Amino acid sequence: MTTTPDGPAAARRLLIVGPPGAGKGTQAARISSALSIPAISTGDIFRANVSGETELGVLAKSYIDKGEYVPDEVTNDMVRSRLAEDDAQAGFLLDGYPRTLAQVDALDAMLDEAGSALDAVLMLEVDYDAVVERLIARGAEQGRSDDTEETIRKRIEVYREQTTPLVEVYEKRGLLRRVDGMRSIDDVTTALLQVLGA
């Protein structure tokens, strides 16, 4: 961690990972508020660029409109641009990025250019069957037709396939902090802040 004349800086450069339904969005908002750092989700970055019709947004929309994946280099450029904004200089909490090993390398390069590095990777560990039930219930409440058991299990499987290699990389670097995501929202927040020493 960087040091200031007053001692260790409160800067936190964090990632949060967990399957759909693990409560990542809720916890990201709480941790970002507690640490006074922005919670940055790739979904938000995409929406901001597309709605703002930035050069990257127009490019991303051209892929999305064709039903294609947005290439890594476009996503990387959007994240690089977002992390360069003033509010992210004291730290950030990334949600939804990186998703691939190539994106891990890209994020490393971005942070290296800025003379910084990740402080920790927060992993919400959950019981997959319980999460499936939670999402089915949420889908019924909100009238979401996409929250069927089959589609939820598919999304969780995609998450596992994508995330396992990333988790292994960050675990080897000693950055992974595992937290039981099945506890109450308040307990999970407390546990996350504890593993960060906050």
Rank of each mutant, 00 (worst) to 15 (best):
G18M: 07
R47T: 06
P20F: 04
V58G: 00
Y63G: 04
S33C: 09
A28W: 06
A34G: 12
Y63V: 00
P38F: 04
A29M: 15
T26R: 07
L56D: 06
P20V: 03
G23L: 13
V17Y: 12
A48D: 14
S32A: 15
F46Q: 11
G43E: 09
I37L: 09
V17N: 02
T26S: 15
L56N: 01
S51L: 14
A28D: 13
E53V: 01
I64W: 07
L56Y: 00
A60K: 05
I40C: 14
V58I: 08
I37K: 04
K24D: 11
S32M: 13
G57N: 05
I31R: 02
V17M: 10
V58M: 08
V50H: 09
G52F: 13
S41T: 10
A28E: 11
N49M: 06
D65R: 01
S33D: 15
I40M: 14
G43T: 10
N49W: 05
S51K: 10
T26F: 15
L59A: 00
I64T: 05
G52K: 06
T26Y: 12
S33P: 00
I64F: 08
R30S: 14
S36H: 15
R47P: 10
E53K: 12
D65M: 03
D44V: 05
S62D: 02
S36I: 10
E55I: 06
G23S: 09
Y63H: 02
S36P: 00
N49K: 00
R30I: 15
Y63C: 04
I16M: 01
T26L: 15
F46W: 14
E55R: 01
I64K: 03
P20D: 02
T54C: 03
G43V: 10
S51D: 10
I37R: 01
